[in-house]
Write a protein that binds this DNA or RNA. Structure first.
Lengths: 144, 144
DNA sequence: TCGTTAACTTGACTCACTCCAGAAAAGACG
DNA sequence: CGTCTTTTCTGGAGTGAGTCAAGTTAACGA
C-alpha cells in the first residue's frame, strides 16, 4: 500500500496542489477499489474529520482528469472509482449484488479490440464489461 | 419500418396488452434509435397528445423487461433505448458529442468474449463500448 | 513573508427517475 | 353485450446523485 508521501509525489507529478483531502481521497480509493462516492466520503471523513461532499466530488474529478483515478459506472450503479490506471483492464459485474472484480485485458494496450465497422469514428478505447453472477450470489441462488 | 400492427403482434407475442402508448413508444424507438427518455416522451406526445411521463417510463421498463427494447446508458449520459435486440451488437460512443452508432459483434452470440480470469463469476454477456470521436467532431476539431 | 491563484466550505439547486393512490381502460367470461 | 377482474395510466409528490455559485482558506512560487 502506498504511503502519504507516495501520494504526494503522484500529485506533484501531475502539477496538482498537495492537500489533505486529496491525499485522503487517493488513500481511500487505494484501500477500497471500486468504491462509490458516498463510501469514499465516509472513509475520508473517518481519516480527516469534517470534509464537505463537494470537496470530495471536486477532488475526484480533478484526480480523474489528471489520470490518477479512473471512474467507472456500470449500468444501474452510481459512479465508482478505482486507482488502477494505465493498464487498460476490464471489469466483471454481478447482476445480482453489483460486485465488481478486475479482469486483465488480454492485450493490455488500448484499444484492445477493433470494431468491425467504425462508421468513420476514430476509436481510441474499447471498454469491456462482463455481466454475470458472482460466486456468492451463484451459491445463494442454488441453495434457495 | 414496421407498422402499428407489427408492433401489436410483437406485444401480443410477449403477452403484453396492446395499448396506444405502447405502440407509440415502440414506434418512437424504432424511428429514433438511441433516443433518450425525454426525446421519446416528446415523440410519443407528438403522435398521441398528452401522455404522462410516468406512462412512458412504465412502458419502457415493461418493454425492456419483455426483451422488445434494450436499454443502454453510456457513462455521462442519460438512459437511452434502442429496438435492435437479440443480435448482441455493440456501440461506439463519441466522447465529444455523445453520438452513438451500432457496431456489429464479430461473433454475434453472447458472450462474444471470454474473460482471462473470471474470478469465479458465471459470465453470460460481454458488453463492449468503443470510445472515440465521431466524424463530425473530428472534422470540427481539425478546422478549429 | 506576501500575493496570487487554486482549492475548500456552505447551502441551495437541478434533473433523471421513482413511488404512491386513485381513476380509467383492456381483456375474460357468462 | 354487460359485468368483473386485472393491468395500465394519471398527476403529483418525493428521492438522491451530482452540480452551481459565492465567499473563505490555504498552498506555493517569488
Amino acid at each position: 500500500m502506498p504511503t502519504a508521501s507516495d501520494f504526494e509525489r503522484l500529485l506533484r507529478g501531475v502539477s496538482l496542489r498537495v492537500t489533505a483531502p486529496r491525499i485522503a481521497v487517493l488513500s481511500a480509493v487505494h484501500e477500497h477499489p471500486h468504491a462509490d462516492t458516498d463510501s469514499i466520503i465516509g472513509v475520508v471523513r473517518q481519516n480527516l474529520g469534517a470534509v464537505s461532499h463537494q470537496a470530495v466530488y471536486d477532488v475526484l474529478r480533478a484526480l480523474t482528469g489528471a489520470g490518477l483515478l479512473r471512474r467507472i459506472e456500470p449500468q444501474g450503479s452510481v459512479a465508482r472509482y478505482e486507482a488502477r490506471v494505465g493498464d487498460n483492464h476490464h471489469h466483471v459485474v454481478c447482476r445480482s449484488c453489483g460486485a465488481i472484480a478486475d479482469v486483465d485485458c488480454a492485450t493490455g494496450a488500448a484499444p484492445c479490440l477493433d470494431a468491425s465497422d467504425d462508421h468513420g469514428f476514430v476509436i481510441d478505447e474499447a471498454e469491456v464489461i462482463y455481466w454475470g453472477t458472482c460466486p456468492e450470489c451463484t451459491t445463494a441462488a442454488k441453495s434457495s
